[in-house]
Amino acid sequence: MSKTTNITIKDVAQSAGCGVATASRVLNNSGPASADVRERVERAARELGFSFSAIGRALQSRRSMTVGCLVPSLANPVFAEAVQGVQAVLLGSGYQMLISCSNYDAAADDAAIEMLLAKKTDALVTTMVDPDRSPALRLAKKRGIPISLMFHDPLDGFITSYVDNFEAAKEVARQFAGLGHRRTGFLALRFSTSDRSRNRYAGFHSECRTRGLPDPVLIEIGEAEANQPDLLAAILAQHPALTAIFASNDFLAIAVQKAARLLGWRVPQDLSVVGFDGIEIGRLLEKPLATIETSPEAMGRQAASSLLTMLQGGDTVQLPALPFAFRAGATLALPNPENGDDGRGATRPSPDLPAEPHAQQG
């Protein structure tokens, strides 16, 4: 085949004797491939004259060469790392990224997608409050815009890059049970509008029942309680029997530790705390945080690789969940046998405490 500017990734895959998704992973350096397959794909690309920049030049008249990236917040390092993963894969592809943040607001999600569509973006990678109910996302799909979701559990009709929240949360229940905790709680922010939080609770609840533990207490809080330790402390004081709390993300787990100190509770002697995400700051605390560790950067890479495959005309299939691991930290220990239902004297939180940094959602 002669070198032309209309060579596609399908041609490269066919010449290399592999699937389009495999060729995309090799050319984007965004996933595993054997040395033999990698050599075949790279040789085929050279011989055919394929390059993403050449494709970009060929499509300039029909495409904006932009990818819209919508996340709830860049203040949360989980989403910032995912965006970096997207950017790493797009680098050198000829595509530029437009970033928008919604601050965990469904209406802002739709407004952002409408803006990105108005700017003729060629593809979307998104993390949203409720993608299944988003009219703007349905409009983008109807227009044939390639879409890749991040962090959400698989949703019919969409390619999703994710960690299995249900299975990961079961591991937290196993850790609690293994140490002898029976009176546990799940702390969630905006529980009703976060599929991630709901699935984490469902997995935690399921494994507690499997192990014969009482159902975990669901503690739902708002922005004010998440951001003000004295308010959160007042809520925790209503649950003095709990010996362990699973927070739906690491920032909430850190907030729990601050609130516990106001109550005179020691972590982990009086209250074990486990988070979710594995943000780096959790390692740097005086007591490193026990948490479910994930790789948001790998999630972003996987999502962007799927988009490039779709943009080059390749078919995509739902990939398996990305791996997770439990990080023990120093906030998880055996329950204190002296702590009965009334074994901890909860002090009244002071209303005059200085403001604390804002908690972030996951």
Rank of each mutant, 00 (worst) to 15 (best):
M1I: 13
T4W: 05
T4C: 10
N6R: 15
G19P: 04
V26F: 11
N28P: 01
S30W: 06
D36L: 14
V37H: 04
E42F: 04
A54M: 09
L59V: 06
R62V: 14
M65I: 00
A80V: 07
E81K: 14
A82P: 01
V86Y: 10
Q87G: 12
L90C: 14
S93N: 04
G94C: 04
G94A: 06
A111R: 15
M115V: 09
K120I: 01
T121R: 08
D122F: 03
L124T: 11
P131F: 08
K141I: 10
K142C: 08
R143K: 13
P146N: 11
S148Q: 13
G157Q: 07
F158M: 10
Y162E: 00
Y162S: 00
V163A: 01
A173D: 01
Q175G: 00
Q175D: 00
G178P: 01
L179H: 01
L179P: 00
H181I: 07
R182C: 11
L187Q: 04
S197G: 12
R198F: 05
H205W: 09
H205V: 03
H205R: 14
R211Y: 00
A224N: 10
N227C: 12
D230W: 06
D230V: 02
L232R: 05
Q238E: 15
H239C: 05
A241T: 07
A241M: 11
T243R: 04
F246K: 03
A247W: 06
S248D: 15
N249F: 11
A255D: 03
L262C: 05
D270V: 02
D270M: 02
F276M: 08
G282D: 08
L285G: 09
E286G: 05
A303W: 04
S306P: 03
G313Q: 09
D315K: 12
V317G: 12
L322F: 03
L322A: 07
F324S: 03
F326L: 03
A330M: 12
T331V: 04
T331F: 03
N336E: 02
N339Y: 01
G343A: 03
R344G: 05
G345N: 12
R348V: 14
D352Q: 06
A355E: 13
